Simulated scan of single mutants.
Amino acid sequence: MSQTLARADRGSAAESLTAVPLRRPGLRVAAVVITFFLIFLLEGWITNPRMQWGTVGEFLFSPVIMEGLRTTLLLTALAMALGIAGGVVLAILRMSKNPILSRLSWGYIWIFRGTPLLVQLLFWYFLSAVVPTVGLGIPWGPTFVQADTNTLITQLTAAVLGLGLHEAAYMAEIVRAGITSVDDGQNEAAQALGMSRGQTLRRIVLPQALRIIIPPTGNQAISMLKTTSLVFAIAVPELLTSIQGIYSRNFQQVPLLVVACFWYLVATSVLNIGQYYLERRFGRGASRDLPPTPLQRLRAAARNHREEKAL
C-alpha cells in the first residue's frame, strides 16, 4: 500500500513539472546578425542603379529568351529520357552473369564518366570530320542506306547525344543501387512462383527500387537543366546562348544574367515540385502516415481559420 502511494506521489510530482527549453542566446544573436547582413546585401543589390532593372523587365519575356527557354526544356526532357532508358539497360547489363555484357557496360560507364561532358559535346559536334557519312548495311559488305553525317547529326542532335549518353552512365549506377537495395528474398519468392527473370525484374524488383531511384533521378534532372548551358560551345540556341547573344550587342551582361537566373530558378522550382509529388506517390507503401502536402496544409489552415471565426 505504501509503495503504491509513493508511486502515485512520484507520478503527480512528475506531472506537475514544467519542461523549460534550454536557452541559446548565442544562436539568437547569430540569427539576428545574419538576417541583418542579408537584408543589407539585398537592399544594396536592389537599389543599385547599375543593375538596370528596366533592362531586366524589358528582356524577361522577350521572344528570343522564351525560345531559348523552350530549347533548354526540350534538351532537358530528351537528354533525361535517353539517359534514363540507357541507364536502365546499362544497369541490367552491369548485373548480368555474362562477363562480356557486364564488362562492356562497365567500360561504357568508365569512359563516359571519366571524360568531361564538354569534350563529349564537341566530339559529337565534330564527328563528321572523321566519319563523313553514316550507313546501314552488312559489315565489310554492301551498304543499303547512307546519309551525310552533318545532315544526320545536327547541333540539337549532337547536344542530345552528348548530354543523354553522358547521363546514362550516371543513371546506370543509380538504377543499379536501387535494384541491389531490394531484398534477395523477393527474387527467390518470384522464382518459386515460376516467374522468369524478366518478369521478376519488371513486376517485383523495379517497382520497389523506384523508391530509391526517384530521389537521385530528380536531382539529376535538375542538374541536367542547368548543365544544358554547356551546349553554348556548339552554338545551340538555348537559354544561356540566347542571353549571350543579346548582351554581346547591348553590353548589359549582369541584367541579362539576372534574367537567365530567374528562368533557371523557375524551371528548377517546377522540377522540385514534381520530384516531391513523385517521391510521395512511390513512398506510400513504405509509410502509412505521409506528411501533408503544402496544398493540404493551406487547406487545413483555411479551414481552421473559418472554424475560429465561426466560434
Score class of each variant (00 low, 15 high):
89 V>W: 07
261 C>M: 14
56 V>A: 10
283 G>F: 09
280 R>P: 05
100 I>M: 09
135 G>P: 00
188 E>W: 05
256 L>V: 03
154 T>I: 09
24 R>C: 05
24 R>K: 07
198 G>T: 15
125 Y>R: 02
289 D>M: 13
63 P>M: 11
136 L>H: 11
96 S>C: 03
44 G>S: 10
176 R>L: 07
99 P>T: 10
247 Y>P: 00
216 P>A: 11
203 R>E: 09
157 T>W: 15
267 A>S: 12
178 G>I: 01
224 M>N: 02
121 L>S: 01
206 L>F: 01
169 A>Y: 02
123 F>H: 02
156 L>N: 12
175 V>C: 01
102 S>L: 04
38 L>N: 09
181 S>P: 02
18 T>V: 11
52 Q>A: 12
122 L>K: 03
222 I>D: 02
267 A>W: 15
127 L>H: 01
304 N>W: 10
201 L>H: 00
298 L>D: 04
187 N>T: 10
134 V>K: 01
49 P>Y: 06
36 F>M: 13
77 A>H: 09
295 L>H: 08
207 P>V: 11
136 L>I: 15
146 Q>Y: 09
187 N>K: 06
198 G>R: 12
152 L>Q: 09
146 Q>M: 12
104 L>K: 03
269 S>I: 12
196 S>V: 09
108 Y>A: 01
278 L>I: 14
162 G>K: 01
180 T>M: 15
226 K>T: 08
86 G>K: 02
119 V>K: 05
258 V>Y: 10
279 E>L: 08
25 P>C: 06
246 I>C: 05
121 L>F: 04
142 P>M: 15
154 T>L: 10
135 G>T: 04
199 Q>Y: 07
178 G>M: 04
2 S>V: 04
233 A>E: 07
262 F>T: 11
213 I>N: 00
210 L>K: 00
90 L>P: 00
119 V>Y: 11
38 L>Y: 14
140 W>E: 13
13 A>S: 13
225 L>H: 04
295 L>C: 08
165 L>M: 14
178 G>D: 04
169 A>K: 00
13 A>L: 15
221 A>W: 13
311 L>V: 11
6 A>F: 10
156 L>H: 11
148 D>L: 15
183 D>A: 13
188 E>T: 09
88 V>Y: 01
246 I>G: 04
4 T>C: 06
176 R>C: 02
301 A>T: 06
69 L>Q: 03
72 T>N: 05
306 R>M: 06
25 P>I: 04
308 E>C: 06
134 V>I: 15
79 A>S: 14
234 I>A: 03
196 S>W: 10
278 L>T: 12
7 R>W: 14
24 R>S: 11
308 E>M: 11
71 T>Y: 07
182 V>Y: 01
205 V>I: 14
72 T>F: 10
69 L>P: 00
191 Q>G: 15
152 L>E: 08
70 R>S: 14
123 F>C: 02
149 T>K: 04
